[in-house]
Design a protein around this nucleic acid. Structure first.
Length: 434
RNA sequence: GGAGGGGUUCCCGAGUGGCCAAAGGGAUCAGACUGUAAAUCUGACGCGCAAGCUUCGGUGGUUCGAAUCCACCCCCCUCCA
């Protein structure tokens, strides 16, 4: 008999419980047996990003506590689009595109949950499986009848869209909450799934499912939401200058991923440790206290980056991220061997291979903007004017711009052909020129 | 189908014939200070090294000159039927 525990106390200590359908009932439900729970992930891209990490990790926490998680990929709901707290109607993507995204996200899910641990083995399901063959009239009569439009338009999640001048909501998106509710009812019926979790923005959709499960199948099910992750400075979590932080290493390298967490603000980092790692709350509190008692830079960011990167990208990904980080931020460039430099490139440091004759025309601003070190040449120009551009630690000035070849002098190359180029304090690019 | 209100640079939002590459805020980038933090201050912020080039839903037009005026079209919102 596996040890079944109620994870709610731990989740509460982590600040991960935002709303529940009733804390006592939920605690009783979870401690009295191994339960099945689910969380939905809609395919809005071909990869999950760190916005999905909290629900994903929470599923895993439940699994570790002896419950069975179902990760639902929204092959159907993704076709419709969730309007919850969205300011605008979204563009519909084609079915082919959504299908391909579903396939990729399914694979990703497989990495983060345990699918081979007996009764608690995770499941990945696609709501298209039970939605695509439902005909319109059945849906309207059997499902739609249970929903009151009066109630639906009162939902906070669509309030802005309905009340705000200049916006609106299509019937398509308005129906989303019914589809999601239907998912919960189906899962309750098929898999005896009795709990749905999700971000707090999903509350309205989730309770719709709680009601529907009762009405359609007489099943009493529960709900829990997690708070949305915020940043203390008020900017949006999960974005950097280079865009969204994806879980797919092809989109966001383990190095960039590691750097993202390493750059967490002091005021956010301890709550992030609770949200995004499996370290115990007491360990995190101890770490915080130790950091407070010491002057200077806290250790928390390093721990956070290590833990999250290892979970998502494994030991190898973490090692790669660290190799780059150590070389660029701690190391001395001229001590690096050829294999070190090659490894940096393999580890995910953005690299461009050029022939020396290609440097004869063009400008430095153009080149550095093209490889992604800045959004435009203007920004490079600005950085040049402030001595913020270096090649192998030589600072370049504005006058260097037109003399592209002179920016990469053969005698300054590392191991004959490598140039570590830096813009600002944190952005690096490796040029290999021969 | 009718009446009215809108669509401005990443976002919000000013601008109603030249002084507009377009106020202000946010986001973002760079610098100073630091710890690869935060806060603060400074600069940048359509593209271009520059000359210059391309923008204000779309297409045409009026004008020496249009984001601003006109025509048609597309999309959104509100109310009415």
């Amino acid at each position: 008999m596996i040890d079944v525990r109620d994870p709610i106390a731990d989740l509460t200590a982590r600040g991960l419980v935002f709303q529940t359908t009733g804390e006592e009932a939920l605690a009783e439900h979870l401690s009295s047996g191994s339960r099945t729970l689910y969380c939905g992930f809609d395919p809005t891209a071909d990869s999950l990003h760190i916005g999905s990490l909290v629900p994903l990790l929470t599923l895993r926490r439940f699994q570790l506590a002896g419950h069975r998680p179902i990760a639902l990929v929204g092959g159907a709901t993704g076709l419709v689009g969730d309007p919850s707290f969205k300011a605008q109607e979204r563009d519909l993507k084609s079915r082919d595109i959504i299908d391909s995204w579903v396939a990729k996200i399914r694979l990703q899910m497989g990495e983060y949950l345990d699918f081979d641990c007996g009764a608690q083995s995770a499941l990945v399901v696609n709501n298209l499986d039970w939605t695509q063959d439902v005909d319109v009239l059945s849906f309207l009569r059997d499902v739609g009848k249970h929903f009151s439009v009066n109630n639906m338009i009162q939902r906070e999640s669509v309030r802005q869209r309905i009340e705000r001048e200049g916006s609106g909501i299509s019937f398509t998106e308005f129906t989303y909450m019914i589809l999601q509710a239907y998912d919960f009812a189906e899962l309750a019926n098929r898999y005896d799934c009795t709990l749905q979790i999700g971000g707090s923005d999903q509350w309205g959709n989730i309770v719709g499912g709680v009601d529907l499960s009762r009405r359609m199948y007489g099943k009493q099910v529960q709900a829990m939401t997690m708070p949305l992750v915020t940043k203390s400075d008020g900017t949006k979590f999960g974005k950097t200058e280079s865009g969204t932080i994806w879980l797919d290493p092809g989109r966001t390298s383990p190095y960039a991923f590691y750097q993202f967490w390493l750059n967490a603000a002091d005021t956010d980092v301890y709550s992030y440790l609770k949200f995004f790692t499996f370290l115990s709350v007491t360990d995190i509190d101890d770490l915080q206290q130790a950091d407070n008692e010491r002057q200077g830079r806290p250790e928390a960011q390093g721990v956070l980056a290590e833990q999250v990167t290892r979970f998502i990208h494994g030991d190898e990904g973490l090692a790669a991220a660290r190799r780059i980080t150590d070389s660029l931020f701690q190391g001395t460039l001229d001590k690096m061997s050829e294999s070190d430099l090659q490894q940096l490139s393999l580890d995910g440091l953005p690299t461009t291979v050029l022939k020396r004759h290609e440097l004869h025309d063009g400008t430095l601003t153009q080149l550095l903007a093209d490889v992604g070190l800045a959004g435009s040449g203007k920004q490079i120009k600005d950085a040049l004017g402030r001595q913020a551009v270096t090649v192998n630690n030589m600072t370049l000035g504005l006058e260097a711009n037109k003399e592209l070849a002179a920016c990469f002098p053969a005698e300054a190359a590392l191991c004959g052909r490598y140039y570590v180029t830096r813009v600002g304090k944190k952005k690096y690019h490796l040029f290999e020129i021969d």
